[in-house]
């Protein structure tokens, strides 16, 4: 009874040949090579033209400064991470919970969505000083700032995801008299997962940006010591290599956050969703 088409393995035939593997390896190392060349060009430019370190430090000096100040910078990095991941966690909890409310009740969405949009379109640098005035705890204020930035992508993507479930599958669940909980668990949540993860990828980076921007505002007031405060402090002292070192930490953190969520996406969607299957080819 089975169709003539037998079980088809994923089409990776092109990758199993020696030339296919070489191309794949080349694709993987190419970005690193280009990045390495850019660093080399930077280093050579600084050395050849004798550019002073207080204008543009060479990458080797930035690395040395990072190593020399690693202890103190890591304390600030941990603080920034606490704000970033705290805000992201709250954005996920708040965004998903509100998205479920929106998906279940159109009236709730009608009433509350304008507030979400106001939060999204208001520049965080404009409201951060107000938040810092209104909230005593600097950490809480920073968390709120980073949360505002990270919250909207989670909310909007999850709302779209929860509504994107196949209509025939919805009918099927209705036909079999699935409870709202069963519909949510077995249909809506899995359907929303690709959208939620896309939102998570955006929100991960935005929560770091939100944390850094908010730290700049709070740092200017001389409170707490996140990486942004260290950048400001180094800037006031014209310690440009130290500014770069802190900047490198922020950038590396952003890259790691991005890679982690790419991995999460691959793990959750890799076996069934077109976005990950295509990118895996």
């Amino acid at each position: 009874m089975i169709d003539s088409a037998s079980k088809m393995p994923f089409s990776k035939a092109g990758l199993t040949t020696p030339s296919g593997r070489s191309i794949q390896f080349f694709k993987q190392i190419l970005p690193f090579c280009v990045f390495g060349l850019a660093l080399l060009a930077w280093e050579l430019t600084v050395r050849i033209y004798n550019i002073p370190h207080y204008i543009l430090p060479a990458p080797t000096l930035v690395l040395k400064t990072l190593w020399d100040n690693l202890g103190s910078l890591m304390v600030s990095w941990v603080y920034t991470m606490k704000i970033t991941f705290g805000a992201l966690l709250l954005a996920v909890i708040g965004g998903v919970a509100l998205a479920m409310l929106f998906a279940l009740n159109k009236w709730v969405e009608l009433c509350l969505f304008p507030f979400a949009i106001v939060l999204q379109v208001t520049p965080i640098v404009a409201i951060a000083p107000l938040i810092l005035i209104f909230i005593d705890s600097t950490t809480a204020a920073l968390l709120l700032c980073a949360w505002i930035v990270a919250f909207f992508p989670i909310l909007s993507n999850t709302v779209v995801g929860l509504r994107s479930a196949d209509q025939n599958l919805r009918d099927l669940f209705m036909l079999y008299r699935a409870s709202p909980w069963q519909t949510l668990r077995f249909l809506l949540v899995p359907s929303a997962m690709p959208y939620f993860i896309a939102g998570l990828k955006i929100a991960g980076g935005l929560s770091l940006i939100g944390a850094v921007v908010a730290e700049f505002t709070a740092g200017a007031a001389g409170k707490e010591t996140g990486l942004a405060s260290r950048i400001l402090e180094a800037s006031f002292r014209t310690e440009i290599p130290k500014m770069f070192a802190a900047l490198v930490l922020v950038s590396l953190t952003g890259i790691v956050i991005y890679l982690v969520f790419m991995g999460v996406s691959k793990l959750v969607l890799g076996k069934w969703h077109e976005s990950e299957i295509k990118s895996g080819r």
């Binding site: 599958l169 099927l172 069934w272 969703h273």
Partner: peptide, 10 residues
């Protein structure tokens, strides 16, 4: 249904 309407995630 006209389409198989399967849950692709399972």
């Amino acid at each position: 249904f006209q389409e198989p309407t399967l849950m692709p995630w399972t």
